[in-house]
Design a protein around this nucleic acid. Structure first.
Lengths: 221, 221
DNA sequence: GAGTGGTCTAGACCACGTT
DNA sequence: ACGTGGTCTAGACCACTCC
């Protein structure tokens, strides 16, 4: 059913932009229930192949289905998945007034004190990723966990999961500090991931991950 | 229904890793049909919040739902969406033997002749993105379209849509050639997107996009 | 107003994986 | 073997939105 609809789109039986038959008509043609057609078409709409509007009907999308699902890796698992040994060093940990860009990203009042953690993640003992994280102390238990023993990332995964958030990907040249920590020449091209997360409306953390050269994030469309 | 399940997960009524009741039990508890429960749980499993296995039951995921859907932008629309004027220059177009990395990415025989297109995309007249594309001539009509008039990207969208493919994101330092074309210093950090696409099993194109500094790709989890 | 998709019910059978 | 989720049917009502 789903496959047949896709075939017709590929075969140009239904051209991009064209209206396709209603669910009821397709159900009759395929000899199946409307719910089955509905599910097939709904799933295709979710991947971006079709566009559906009540009353207006279902159209083959004009712009192509450029929607990919991206699995955001957990650093330790990602490193171990390559067959490398994972390790990390907590470089710095201090409670301090967060700079304006950080508080504004999280929607917090300026000048609030957040816990800043700088962590270097290692693969087979070599620098893999430099993490600069700001944590909302409100989410931490008392006493706070020992982030030298468990990485902040893993602690959060186990204790504050099921968050919402946004992610941005970009590239940046390594600063002097980043270059030194990662063992690179200053100005080397780093792959940057910035994430901010909330649990319901409570800001949890914002983090900047700077990956050593050679890192690639992959997905399938 | 979906919301209530999410609430229980957030509230730790159901802890990470814990087994939740069967669909039938939940249907009774909520006073709704099993199909309704099934849909809610299936959708949550798709976002990564739950893990489902036949016979084993449904568990709250241990690793958090780090699955993002990424909308791959069409360059012209992305530029225009920022309120900037879009333009492009076809820098180079030639049929030549593709190097091994290119043919292997597409699963083609080495030494096959492909159409190489180098295109500079502009936003408000300033370099925005350098595109290095290899096109399978087998997908082109005779005569071939004029890629100086319509960008290869847009032609493909209109004439060979509904492809499958893979995407990789990374960072790279600008080569001398890239730096000159993009108007940057050599070694500047570029955000790199590499895409290969197929229509069914027919290799269509592989492309490397090098974005000028400042570019950010965003998404929401 | 009327036609479309969105969602639900109640029931059934099947596929798979654990046991 | 058995229990779980996966998927289907046939029918119903509702919500939206285009005309």
């Amino acid at each position: 059913m789903r496959a047949e609809v896709l075939r017709r789109i590929h075969a140009r039986d239904w051209a991009p932009g064209a209206l396709i038959p209603t669910e009821e008509a397709l159900a009759q043609e395929f000899g199946c229930a409307r719910a089955t057609v509905n599910r097939a078409l709904r799933e295709l709409a979710e991947t971006g192949v079709l566009e559906r509007r009540r009353k207006a009907g279902t159209r083959v999308a004009l712009s192509p289905p450029r929607r990919a699902t991206l699995d955001i890796p957990v650093t330790r698992l990602e490193v171990e998945g390559r067959g490398q040994a994972y390790g990390f060093h907590l470089l710095e940990q201090r409670l301090r007034e967060a700079p304006a860009p950080v508080t504004s990203r999280l929607g917090l009042a300026p000048g609030l004190e957040l816990l800043q953690l700088k962590t270097l993640h290692l693969a087979d003992g070599r620098p893999f990723l430099l993490e600069d994280r700001w944590l909302n102390p409100a989410v931490l238990p008392d006493p706070a966990p020992d982030f030298a023993a468990i990485s902040a990332n893993e602690w959060l995964v186990g204790h504050v999961p099921y968050t919402t958030g946004d992610i941005a990907f970009s590239a940046a040249s390594a600063s002097a500090e980043e270059a030194e920590v990662l063992g690179l020449a200053e100005g080397a091209a780093l792959f940057i991931v910035e994430r901010s997360t909330w649990e319901r409306d409570l800001p949890v953390t914002t983090v900047r991950l700077a990956y050593a050269p050679g890192y690639r994030l992959r997905t399938v469309v």
